[in-house]
Structure formats: structure tokens, C-alpha cells
Computed example of a mutant assay.
Amino acid sequence: MNPQEPSLPLTTDRLILRAYRESDAEALLPMYSREDVARFLLCDPWTAEESRTEISKRIPKTGLSTESRALSLVIETKDGLDDIEGSIIIGDLGIWLNGESSEKAEIGWVLNPAAGGHGFASEAATAVLNIAFDHYRLNRVVAQMDARNTASARLAKRIGMRQEAHLRQDWWSKGEWTDTLVYGILHSDRQQA
């Protein structure tokens, strides 16, 4: 693994992927407090206090070579995009090392439903996969999700991940047994951004 962390922010054609700051607690609260967003997450909808706590946990996650072994990023649109005034936060994503290995990681994302359908999540996730494989030299990245989260499953497929498992009733979440889908992508079969 490359001991140097990638320069932040990461930029794509339409997005800025940057490290968290304290002010993101207020900016992300309207998204994470929504029932429809939290439905498939491991957490309940956030309160203002939970938002501050969660963001403070993500601020130090600045790279896979750091003590946190994780990279957590806010997804912001670039200024000047059609139909979007100014730069706005539309979600977040993260990648973290699995277990003791420095060659396998898991990726996860949350996008504001209002920003869906424009390819922003694919653009952001592909940029992070490129960092994972090109900078960190990972061999494998997985995404695990509630099987009812069809939007997340479609995103995983769009960015070149393959469904590897459908685990039946393997996770107790919010008062019910839920299924988990596991998607994976290897260094050898990834897409380039």
C-alpha cells in the first residue's frame, strides 16, 4: 500500500470529494434525518446531536494508511452545474479496510434522493474505486447492502461490481431479519473513470 495519502479534495468532472468538517453535521442532517434515507442504513434517522457525533467520528478518516484505516468523503457538486445553484452537498461515501488485510476494502455510499438520477453517485464511487486500485493498490473492494435497496444494487452494477452473494435473513435490523447483497470488484476487472 502507498504510505502517502491521496491529495484531497478529489475532483471529477462535476464533483468535489472532500474530507469532512464540523459544519457538515448541519449540512448532512436534512438528508440523514429522512426516514426514506435511513430505511436501509444500519442507523435510525439522525437527530442534530447524532449528526454532530457521527461527523466527528468521520473527520479523522482521511486515508487507508492512517490509524483509522478509512477514507470518508463528502460529495459536493461543483459550482456552475446546470440546474444547480452554487455548490451543494449531495451525499457522502467512504472506503475502509476489511480486517487485518491491507489489500481488501469495503465501500459504502449515501446520496440525497433529490440528487438521484444524474449519475453523481456513479461518478463519485468510480473516483474512489480508482484511488483504491491505482493509489492504494488494493486487490478487492466489496459493497454490502440491504437487499431491498435496489438503487444501491443498481449503482454497484453500474460501477462494474458483480453480485457475489445474496445472504438470506442474515442481519437483524430495525426489528426484522433482512437479507444482504454482497457485490465485489477486483483490481483486474474494474472500470476506469
Results as ranks from 00 to 15, higher is better:
Lys78Trp: 07
Ala48Asn: 03
Trp172Phe: 13
Gln163Glu: 14
Leu138Val: 10
Cys43Val: 13
Glu67Arg: 03
Asp170Leu: 00
Arg69Lys: 04
Asp82Glu: 15
Glu85Val: 14
Glu67Phe: 00
Leu42His: 09
Met31Asn: 02
Arg137Thr: 11
Ala70Asp: 05
Val110Cys: 10
Ile59Leu: 01
Gly99Tyr: 04
Asn149His: 15
Lys78His: 10
Glu35Gln: 13
Glu35Trp: 04
Glu164Met: 10
Ala105Lys: 03
Gln144Cys: 13
Val141Met: 11
Ile90Val: 15
Val128Leu: 15
Glu35Pro: 09
Ser122Trp: 07
Ser101Arg: 09
Leu73Arg: 05
Ala153Ser: 14
Ile75Thr: 11
Ala48Ile: 05
Asp146Pro: 11
Thr62Glu: 05
Ile89Gln: 06
Met145Pro: 09
Ala143Lys: 08
Leu42Glu: 13
Asp92Val: 00
Asn112Leu: 02
Thr53Asp: 01
Asn130Lys: 15
Ile75Asp: 00
Trp46Lys: 02
Gly94Arg: 01
Glu164Phe: 13
Trp96Ala: 13
Glu106Trp: 03
Ser152His: 03
Ser65Ala: 14
Leu81Ile: 07
Trp96Leu: 10
Ala153Gly: 15
Arg158Leu: 11
Arg168Ser: 12
Glu106Thr: 12
Val110Gln: 00
Tyr136Asn: 06
Gly160Ala: 12
Glu100Asp: 12
Arg140Met: 14
His135Phe: 11
Pro113Leu: 14
Ser56Pro: 01
Ala124His: 08
Ile88Ser: 10
Asp79Leu: 07
Leu42Trp: 10
Ala156Pro: 09
Ser102Met: 06
Ala105Pro: 03
Met161Asp: 04
Arg148Thr: 10
Ser56Cys: 03
Pro30Gln: 11
Arg58Gln: 09
Ala48Gln: 08
Asp82Gln: 12
Val74Ala: 07
Leu129Ala: 05
Ser68Gly: 03
Trp96Met: 09
Leu81Cys: 09
Ile159Asp: 02
Arg140Ser: 09
Phe133Lys: 05
Ile159Gly: 07
Gln169Tyr: 08
Leu29Tyr: 12
Ala165Asn: 08
Glu103Met: 13
Ala27Arg: 14
Phe120His: 09
Lys78Leu: 10
Leu93Tyr: 03
Lys57Cys: 01
Arg69Met: 03
Asp44Pro: 02
Ile88His: 03
Arg52Leu: 02
Ile159Phe: 10
Thr53Ser: 09
Phe40Asn: 13
Gln169Asp: 11
Leu93Trp: 01
Leu138Pro: 06
Gly99Glu: 04
Ala105Glu: 02
Ile55Met: 00
Asn98Tyr: 01
Ala151Thr: 08
Asp92Ser: 05
Ala165Ile: 01
Asn139Val: 10
Cys43Phe: 15
Ala153Trp: 06
Lys104Arg: 13
Ala70Pro: 02
Pro113Asp: 08
Ser51Leu: 04
Ala165Met: 07
Gly80Asp: 05
